[in-house]
């Protein structure tokens, strides 16, 4: 199994993401700088990590979404390669048009940094197959712009198609319908604000995030 974690100027969860993927899936994991226009061959997983790419200039994720490497990520996603975007990675995926909607400033204005309860809405996706539908899990969030917005027609369609992967089990940031993570129409791109890579062993306070990666490797293998 081969994986790549994309690094932008201002990414800060890139190493945690690479460690999580390497430790849990055993994948040969490389860090790929945003200026690259070609990805390593034979990738089974691409991860877009959290952070503050380009200092959140213009809008969170806006500059990163237009960087050279993202053209290659968009092409790979189109071929069915699994793409996981966490936090700033989720913002980048919406800005790049790989996921619907937008992530706006938290409704309460403040940066939110704490472990939150999530409900697994769809346990059938390649990212969520090791969870049960309706299960409550705990994963940390750390973001200023996590307030998911899409128009009602888009939200209805996404819910109807099972594309809401996770919802907050408590008010966190004003997100439409408490959405915390969404899938693309083909099901191979997941964006989520909570950080599964920060919850992979007991030392971190829990391992609910670990199962996302364990599920992925089963689906990919």
């Amino acid at each position: 199994m081969r994986a790549a974690v994309i690094q932008f100027p201002g990414s800060n969860c890139d190493r945690d993401m690479a460690v999580a993927i390497r430790d849990i899936t055993g994948a040969d994991t490389s860090l790929v700088w945003h200026r690259e226009s070609v990805l390593p061959t034979g990738l089974d997983l691409i991860a877009i990590p959290g952070g503050f790419s380009y200092g959140d200039y213009l809008r969170s994720g806006a500059m990163a979404a237009r960087s050279p490497v993202m053209q290659a990520v968009i092409a790979a996603a189109g071929r069915g390669v699994p793409v996981l975007g966490v936090c700033n990675g989720f913002q980048i995926l919406t800005e790049a048009g790989l996921l619907p909607g937008a992530l706006m400033r938290n409704a309460g204005i403040r940066f939110v940094c704490r472990t939150v309860g999530l409900t697994v809405e769809n346990s059938q996706s390649m990212f969520t197959s090791s969870y049960s539908a309706g299960e409550k899990i705990h994963i940390p969030v750390a973001h200023h712009d996590g307030n998911f917005f899409a128009d009602d027609a888009t939200l209805d369609r996404m819910e109807g198609e099972g594309r809401v992967a996770f919802r907050y089990a408590e008010p966190v940031n004003g997100s439409a319908r408490n959405i915390a993570g969404v899938l693309n129409d083909a099901g191979n791109v997941l964006g989520m604000m909570p950080h599964p890579e920060r919850m992979i062993e007991a030392m971190q306070g829990g391992s609910d995030g670990r199962r996302l990666f364990e599920g992925l490797i089963r689906e990919i293998a």
Binding site: L58, A62, R66, G101, A102, M104
Partner: peptide
């Protein structure tokens, strides 16, 4: 439309 505004919002 490509960069300066996010047409979703």
């Amino acid at each position: 439309t490509k960069l300066l505004a996010n047409m979703v919002i």
